[in-house]
Every structure is written in C-alpha cells, then in structure tokens.
Design a protein around this nucleic acid. Structure first.
Lengths: 125, 125
DNA sequence: CTAATTGTACTATTATGGATAGTACAATAA
DNA sequence: TTATTGTACTATCCATAATAGTACAATTAG
C-alpha cells in the first residue's frame, strides 16, 4: 500500500494520514471503501497499532474517514472531490515554477526536489 | 531581526539557519557582513547560546558562513550571486511540491508544467 | 599588557513528542 | 459463541532538541 520513512522528522502517524489522503486523491482508494484494520496495517507498516489508531482517529476528526466500531473505518465522501484540489494545485505550482525559472533554478534542481519528495528523501514540515 | 516559532516542529537551530539564508536572499544581509554574536542573538531570540552556535556551525559547514574565532561569523560570498535567492526559492518550491504530492499530483503532471515553462511547449523528457 | 569579546568544545541535565507495550472493553459479524 | 472491529486507557522507552554551565584559544579594544 505504502511505506513509512523512519528517517523522516515527520511523525509516523502523520505519514499514515498523508498517504491515505494521497491514495484517495489518486483514486487508489474510493469513498466508502474500507481501510485495513488497525492491527493489520500496523503489522504491514511495522509500527505499533496505537500509532495507526491515532492516524485513523485524526482522519476521522477531519471528516475524511468515518468509523463503525466492530466493522471498520471507511473513506468518507468528503475526500472524493480531490479533482478540484489537484487543478488548483497545478495552478499554484505553475506560478511558483515561473518564479523558480526567473531566479535561475534549473530543471535538474527541481527534479532533485521532486525525487526527494516523491521517492523518499528527507522530509520536514 | 527575526523570531522563532516555538510551536513549530522545526528545530530552533534549523529555523535560525533558514532565516539567515532568507535574510540574505532578501538583501537584508550582504556578504562579508558580520552576523550577530552567538550570545547576542541567543538573548535576542530567547534561546540558548549553544543553539545559535549550532546553527552557525551548520551554516559554516555548508559554506554559507565563514568564521574567525575572536572576530565573529560572516556571510560568505557563496550566498551572493543570487545563490541565496535560489536557495530560498528551492525551499518555497519544496513546500509547494509537498502539497502537490499530498494532493496526488504525479511527477508526470509536474514535468508537464516544467516543460511548459522551461521549453515552452509539448515536449517531454 | 589587560580585559572584554569572539567562536568553539565539552559534559550533564531536562523537556518534549513520538512510539511502543500491554491490557481491556463495546460493537459488529460469521 | 468466537473472532474481528475500533477505542481507551496507563506505563514506559527513546531520540532529539534544548538548556545550563564551564572552559579555552583567538581576536580586539583600552
């Protein structure tokens, strides 16, 4: 599903939240679909069940997940409309990249950052 | 000069480094200009001198600052020439790309925008 | 010269947040 | 029933950051 970067300064529970949201944005998980059980995901990721539980509970308080004790946790409808966010994000990114261009950042410089973020380099907040 | 966000998960010494780089990129500090003394900046920011010392020493090992014991720490030439501006831009771009990542934008999505800006059209790499 | 200021190098200690360990419980499903 | 779900605890551990305090070499100002 995804993996945890234990070198990162970003807390594991936060990484779990981020990844779930990202997967939904990608369409890899659809709304009303059930998330892996807390204990299951914990063993999959190699972390403590409490850590996953914390992530789930935070996602629920954000409204991105609804949960039924005894059944499981499920992606809410609220998370489905990621398309608008992606378009908006593209526009913002375009403006920022124009600035980068005018300051003299090279495509390689940018690729470096992309690799760092997408393929598991250092993260900060 | 600047202030520290003690609520942030970003370490104070890191914030100090970032801010100094940022100030240089804004032209608020020029190269060969002396930085405040470790003890002075410490009291200004309300932190421990050791924390500032750590920031300075990290900046030095990055080559952004040179230091003479007994005299002080100074901004190196390296940060002139728009280098500082590019560093700051990289930081901003990194934050934006993190957002893009979390929203589900793919590297290809981003490459498309980069090509559009840098090569003015529909080529891909 | 002396005295003050510079950065640096230590060691020790504390504080905080995150993660783990373990247990227990209510609700659901087979 | 029995197993699985999420949840709620408490206690503990650990890593990192930050502090506290001292000391020292180099520089500068007097």
């Amino acid at each position: 599903m995804f993996s945890i970067n234990f070198q990162s300064r970003v807390p594991v529970y936060q990484q779990i939240c981020d990844n779930i949201i990202r997967l939904v944005s990608y369409g890899a998980i659809k709304s009303n679909e059930q998330l892996p059980a807390v204990r299951r995901m914990a063993t999959d990721l190699g972390v403590n069940p409490n850590t996953v539980a914390k992530a789930y509970s935070m996602l629920e308080s954000s409204g991105y997940v609804y949960t039924v004790t005894g059944k499981g946790s499920f992606i809410s409808e609220k998370l489905q409309n990621g398309e608008a966010r992606r378009i908006e994000m593209k526009n913002q990114l375009r403006e920022k990249l124009k600035e980068a261009y005018s300051v003299g950042l090279s495509p390689d410089d940018i690729s470096e950052i992309i690799n760092e973020i997408y393929y598991g380099g250092e993260e900060n907040d």
